[in-house]
């Protein structure tokens, strides 16, 4: 076998292991979530039980609907089997198939989150650059003050303020993400800025673009990927209250409602998806690490 052939095999086996790991993680995550929901108080009481109009029939109907959710393991097994075929069960709180709900709402949240993550990271990078590169303490303080202000405002309140002024909520999401990734981005930039290699390169007069690529983006890729994962999670975490409060019909609003009404099928589906997204970002990050590139070089 040639050296490069061995490299390909190594890469393929790494890919396969990543994929297997991903599946295991998603399954475990889904199970952990289902267990948490199932064993939290209020699981088997109907949310409308506090309402005389519900009467005993409503309670009975709810009991019948949820009977198969009582035994956690069999429930999860059945759920996974159906989920493979794209059937995520029927939402308890909406009485609509979960798949349908997700289909309707995923684009809304997806757009918001994408804008938010991209905008947030870009703005944070800009702020970080302003704070690190020019080496002007006052500028650094102004930027820090701005970030601190953003950090102090609850994302939902920020979004509401935008909403009431009829301004785009995407910007509010980005502004909510900015301060939460700023610290790390600044640390990355600072490390890069102070690294001897970069100093040497600068003294040789290399262009900023080349510098940014070769000495910031490439070596920092694992950290940036980890950051993107965190930013995506922050975005989703922030979108739950934002969507719930600003009445955006997205996944976040679903998650909030599902949590309050112990909607097991819906919450399981949401966790499976979220775990999948996070794990994929993680796996992508790992596959991109210099280790992979490195091992290839060694193989050659």
């Amino acid at each position: 076998m040639t050296a490069s052939g061995r490299g390909v095999v190594a890469l393929a086996s790494k890919l396969a292991r990543s994929l297997a790991g991903l599946i295991v993680i998603v399954l475990l995550g889904g199970f952990a979530a289902a267990a948490l929901v199932r064993y939290s108080p209020g699981f088997d009481v109907d949310e409308n039980a506090w309402n005389t109009k519900g009467g005993s029939s409503a309670a009975e109907a709810s009991r019948v609907r949820r009977a198969q959710e009582n035994e956690l393991l069999p429930f999860y097994w059945r759920y996974l089997k159906a989920a493979v075929k794209g059937d995520f069960g029927e939402s308890e709180s909406y009485r609509v198939p979960v798949a349908e709900l997700l289909q309707d709402r995923a684009p809304v949240t997806g757009r918001l989150a994408a804008w938010g993550v991209a905008g947030g990271i870009l703005m944070a990078a800009l702020c970080g650059w302003l704070a690190v590169w020019p080496r002007v303490p006052v500028l650094e303080l102004v930027v820090s003050g701005w970030v601190a202000l953003l950090l102090a405002v609850p994302p939902a309140v920020l979004a509401l303020a935008f909403f009431f002024r009829e301004a785009p909520i995407q910007v509010a999401v980005a502004l909510a993400i900015l301060p939460r990734v700023f610290g790390t981005i600044r640390a990355i930039l600072r490390d890069a800025h102070e690294s001897p290699a970069l100093l040497a390169a600068r003294s040789r007069g290399l262009g900023t673009g080349v510098l940014a690529w070769r000495y910031v983006l490439v070596p920092m890729a694992p950290r940036i990927m980890a950051l993107a994962g965190v930013a995506a999670m922050v975005a989703f975490g922030a979108l739950v209250p934002i969507e719930a409060l600003c009445d955006v019909p997205g996944i976040g609003q679903l998650a909030w409602k599902a949590a309050l009404s112990r909607d097991l099928p819906l919450l399981s589906a949401l966790t499976l998806i979220v775990t999948f997204v996070v794990a994929s970002i993680q796996a992508a990050g790992e596959l991109m690490t210099p280790e992979t590139i490195h091992s290839k070089e060694v193989a050659e």
Partner: peptide, 22 residues
């Protein structure tokens, strides 16, 4: 560890608080 952090970031911890309160 990377698997655990993924799970840790994805599951609805809120229920842990509900259980704690209970």
């Amino acid at each position: 560890l990377s698997g655990l952090t993924t799970i840790g970031m994805s599951i609805p911890w809120m229920f842990l608080f509900i259980i704690l309160r209970a």
